[in-house]
Amino acid sequence: MEILLSLVIGVLTACGVYLLLRAQTFPVVLGLTLLSYAVNLFLFASGRLVEGRPPIIVAGQTGYADPLPQALVLTAIVIGFAMTAFVIMLALKARAELGTDEVDGQAEGRTEAEGEGR
């Protein structure tokens, strides 16, 4: 399970970073989302992976899962969700005001006519 989880985190991070470096705002937002998924899984794993154990005290139970990373992940999810919503609104605003969805606000490598016609 550790290998599977670390692979998932790695692939998510790689995709996130790749998309983050794209020139248009939508892939960048997706990249940030993937990156935050990877980070959430990573945070969750920092309390070690255990199966079938409760995080809160139960009578007669001996082993427990670490509850703190779960609380941290909840906080991170909430913050990440709010930030994603904010970035999407900002990207839409940029699309409306700058007339292009390029992150730099200008179409690089395209001709001007194409850039304006988009």
Binding site: L20, L32, I79
Partner: peptide
């Protein structure tokens, strides 16, 4: 808006 977008994206990557 343009400067703000860069600022937000850079800082979100930093938060990650």
């Amino acid at each position: 808006t343009r400067a703000g977008l860069h600022y937000v994206v850079v800082n979100l990557a930093g938060s990650a």
